[in-house]
Amino acid sequence: MFSAFLRLSLVSRIMIAIVLGVAVAILFPESAPYLSLLGDLFIKALKSVAPILVFILVMASIANFKIGSSNAYIKPIMLMYAIGMFLAALSAVIASSLFPSTLFLGVATQADLTPPGSLAEILKNLLLSFVANPVVAIAEANFIGILAWAVALGIAFRHATESTKALLNDAANAVNRVIRLVINFAPFGIFGLVAVTFADAGLSTLASYAQLLAVLLGTMFFVALVINPIMVAFVTRSNPYPLVFQCLRESGITAFFTRSSAANIPVNLDLAKRLGVQESTASVAIPLGAVINMAGASVTITVLTLAAVNTLGISVDFSTMLILSVVATVSACGASGVAGGSLLLIPVACGLFGISSDIAMQVVAIGMVISVLQDSTETALNSSTDVLFTTAVDRGLS
């Protein structure tokens, strides 16, 4: 029976693991703390291998880069990332206008949370991350610094001997083998993560925020199933939904339970390879997407900020909402460089409306309460979009 399970496709095994995880959470909730070890080991393995994977793959890809091979692909992918985030923020503005939400302010904030004070501080943190010590960047999983050093060394190695370039390729292939081994354990890790998530008693507290969650998740689903397919159809000139559903199924589900775009980089690189994307394109675009492509973060920042605005009765015109969409897009790009991710960037957006930092941090605290679903769905949208847009451009320009 176990042998038959192993012969199934990875997606089939993950789906079975999800069903079993839900069943165990319902029937034996007391076992969840023990099963959490499986999920913790899986996430730890992904997070451990992701920094060195990105560093070596990007460096090897650029070192062996052939003029005209993938340079033409990177710029359109980056443009799709930017447009996708802005349209996601704009969708959140419209959804919040149609279905205004209110918050129960007065929630206790966490003293250890220190949000950035402005967009300038976000950009400063990003620039400082670029020049971080490479060893420290890899040890702390600072993917902005990792990318910067990988690109710099990759360019330098372009002038190396062919044997050195071959060595870099062999190192990249070796890391890929380790990645495939880790990914094969995904069903077991997902099983543990699902069991813990559904057995968590904190889920009952989400009922009081049903309206807010409905707007948040509904907007993210709209982006995933309407906005993204329209963009992909424009680029590929074909029916986008087979690709959209495959990316959501094979990348989004894993990202939903790991709740980490960085941890999902190996999954996306493996999927991109199976989708036929050039390795020289995927090895640069997907790690970069995990750092700056944050459509889900744009939605979160916009919806929660406008919920606070609506709660306080602040009047907002369309031009201000448009500016908010731009601010949310820029802030989302810096989400990966701030401890706490998208939630800690909400005070920056709240500053547009003169909302005090005390109230803004209460909004952040509410975000922490609903993060079981909000952060998981956000990560699923962010990560699946990375491989979706990369594949779309690769096919559209091929």
Rank of each mutant, 00 (worst) to 15 (best):
residue 193 L to S: 10
residue 192 G to V: 08
residue 177 R to P: 00
residue 187 P to L: 02
residue 192 G to S: 10
residue 183 I to W: 11
residue 179 I to H: 06
residue 184 N to L: 12
residue 198 F to W: 03
residue 180 R to L: 06
residue 199 A to S: 15
residue 178 V to E: 05
residue 188 F to P: 00
residue 175 V to C: 10
residue 170 D to E: 14
residue 177 R to L: 14
residue 188 F to W: 11
residue 186 A to S: 14
residue 180 R to T: 10
residue 175 V to H: 13
residue 193 L to I: 11
residue 189 G to V: 01
residue 191 F to Y: 08
residue 176 N to I: 01
residue 185 F to R: 00
residue 185 F to N: 06
residue 192 G to C: 04
residue 200 D to C: 00
residue 193 L to C: 06
residue 180 R to I: 11
residue 192 G to N: 08
residue 194 V to F: 04
residue 175 V to E: 11
residue 197 T to L: 13
residue 192 G to E: 04
residue 194 V to N: 01
residue 186 A to Y: 01
residue 173 N to K: 15
residue 180 R to N: 08
residue 191 F to L: 10
residue 190 I to P: 08
residue 179 I to C: 08
residue 177 R to T: 13
residue 179 I to S: 02
residue 191 F to R: 01
residue 170 D to Q: 15
residue 173 N to A: 15
residue 183 I to N: 06
residue 184 N to R: 11
residue 196 V to C: 00
residue 171 A to G: 12
residue 189 G to A: 06
residue 186 A to M: 14
residue 187 P to D: 05
residue 172 A to H: 08
residue 182 V to N: 07
residue 180 R to M: 11
residue 174 A to H: 07
residue 196 V to K: 15
residue 189 G to W: 01
residue 175 V to L: 12
residue 200 D to M: 00
residue 193 L to M: 14
residue 190 I to E: 04
residue 175 V to G: 09
residue 173 N to F: 12
residue 196 V to E: 12
residue 193 L to E: 08
residue 176 N to V: 07
residue 178 V to C: 07
residue 194 V to L: 04
residue 193 L to P: 03
residue 188 F to I: 13
residue 179 I to R: 05
residue 188 F to L: 15
residue 183 I to V: 12
residue 190 I to K: 11
residue 172 A to V: 10
residue 199 A to F: 01
residue 176 N to H: 13
residue 187 P to T: 09
residue 186 A to Q: 03
residue 188 F to E: 02
residue 170 D to V: 13
residue 183 I to M: 11
residue 181 L to Y: 05
residue 178 V to Y: 11
residue 189 G to E: 09
residue 179 I to K: 05
residue 182 V to T: 12
residue 196 V to T: 14
residue 195 A to R: 02
residue 172 A to W: 13
residue 178 V to Q: 09
residue 192 G to T: 01
residue 180 R to A: 11
residue 195 A to N: 12
residue 184 N to P: 02
residue 197 T to I: 03
residue 192 G to Q: 06
residue 175 V to A: 12
residue 199 A to E: 05
residue 175 V to R: 08
residue 174 A to W: 13
residue 172 A to F: 09
residue 199 A to M: 09
residue 177 R to V: 08
residue 198 F to N: 02
residue 190 I to M: 09
residue 174 A to F: 12
residue 197 T to W: 04
residue 173 N to H: 09
residue 178 V to H: 08
residue 180 R to D: 10
residue 182 V to W: 01
residue 199 A to I: 10
residue 170 D to S: 15
residue 199 A to P: 04
residue 198 F to H: 05
residue 200 D to R: 00
residue 187 P to K: 06
residue 199 A to L: 02
residue 195 A to K: 07
residue 182 V to Y: 04
residue 197 T to E: 04
residue 185 F to W: 04
residue 173 N to T: 10
residue 194 V to M: 09
residue 199 A to W: 09
residue 198 F to I: 04
residue 184 N to S: 12
residue 189 G to N: 05
residue 181 L to R: 06
residue 194 V to R: 06
residue 190 I to T: 04
residue 185 F to H: 04
residue 172 A to Q: 03
residue 171 A to D: 07
residue 171 A to N: 11
residue 197 T to R: 10
